[in-house]
């Protein structure tokens, strides 16, 4: 079994970047000065990912105001809506308002990723909103049903994946908290499967990951097993590890083993124990370890401390790893 480690969502902004963005908003810093702090912070995150030996690099999505903002601002059909609570957290996103069927604008996602000189595409993990969560969390005034919209986002994101594949990107993760917080049934569940069928076809040999978080995935496992992707990730703060079943087709499993709702670092030996149990049960081809949810629920130093658990757990899982 191959063990890989990586970020699974946004990394928190550093205190320096916090101060810079505040100053920028208050007119106390120029846009150039704020941009310089962004670039510096992004380099720091990439360097941290490198030092920790991460198998895919994200740059921390520091410029993404929220999971949907590049799309709400860059694709056609949207406006940026009101501040809305982000699941059961004390953080918020601006709800996209969809006024017409959405249209992809090529280059928007690429423009929101770290530059290729900082993160070479072949080493990058591209983190995108999942089609089910995207369609479910926006304010849909487009006239399309949620089912149709879910499928449409699948097609649009598949186009995005194709373009990025052509540019050398090979690892794609789709954020799907809503799949476990408000699981779909009937036609809506079928729409989610259809959306991932399109994405899976576009991925064409690349790694495609569906990452679930903020909810218990146990009741949704049969649906998750139907999604034609390489890896399905679980948030272990919400899903009891001993209730996760490895998929029957030996595909990969993601273990969201860092809980971003507490600063308390996890124990790498516990993470390794859980991973071994899943390995014994289902023999997944690969195992991705990462934060269970968005790590930007933590201040930056606490988040960085937690990330050190990942290489330690990976080390323990190596064939000649540490003691059990």
């Amino acid at each position: 079994m191959t063990v890989r480690i990586a970020l699974t969502g946004p990394f928190p902004r550093s205190e320096v970047l916090v101060a810079a963005t505040r100053d920028g908003d208050r007119g106390r810093a120029t846009p150039e000065a704020v941009e310089a702090r962004y670039a510096e912070a992004e380099r720091d995150v990439v360097a941290l990912e490198g030092r920790l030996g991460f198998d895919a690099v994200t740059g921390g999505s520091l410029r993404w105001a929220d999971l949907f903002r590049p799309f709400a601002e860059g694709w056609r059909g949207f406006t940026v809506g009101p501040v809305t609570r982000w699941f059961e957290t004390n953080t918020f996103y601006r709800q996209p308002i969809l006024h017409a069927p959405p249209e992809r604008v090529p280059g928007v996602v690429r423009g929101a990723l770290p530059g290729a000189t900082l993160v070479p595409p072949g080493q990058a993990k591209v983190i995108l909103p999942g089609p089910f969560t995207f369609a479910g969390l926006l304010d849909n005034r487009s006239g399309e049903t949620r089912e149709a919209l879910t499928h449409r986002f699948g097609r649009l994101l598949a186009e995005e994946v194709r373009d990025l594949r052509a540019a050398g990107y090979a690892t794609f993760q789709f954020q799907e908290p809503l799949l476990v917080v408000d699981p779909p049934e009937g036609p809506l569940a079928e729409a989610a499967v259809a959306a991932y069928r399109d994405i899976g076809a576009a991925a064409d040999g690349a790694t495609s990951i569906v990452w679930t978080y903020f909810g218990d995935a146990v009741p949704v496992q049969p649906l998750l097993a139907r999604l034609p992707v390489s890896v399905v990730g679980f948030d272990l703060a919400e899903t009891e590890p001993d209730r996760i079943h490895a998929p029957p087709d030996h595909r990969g499993i993601g273990l969201g083993c860092l809980d971003p709702r507490t600063t308390l670092p996890e124990d790498p030996t516990e993470v390794a124990r859980i991973a071994r149990a899943l390995q014994a049960e289902g023999k997944p081809r690969e195992l991705w370890l990462g934060p269970g949810g968005p790590l930007d629920l933590l201040p930056t130093e606490a988040a960085a401390r937690k990330l050190h658990v990942l290489p330690a757990a990976k080390q323990l899982l190596a064939p000649n790893g540490g003691s059990r």
Binding site: P12, R13, E15, V18, T21, R22, G24, D25, A65, D66, V83, N90, T91, F92, Y93, R94, T263, D296, L297, L298, P299, T300, E301, A302
Partner: peptide, 17 residues
Amino acid sequence: FLGHVRSFDNKYYLKAA
């Protein structure tokens, strides 16, 4: 107190453990 957490956009709050 451990540092700032983003509430939304460029709004943050200080959070303790």
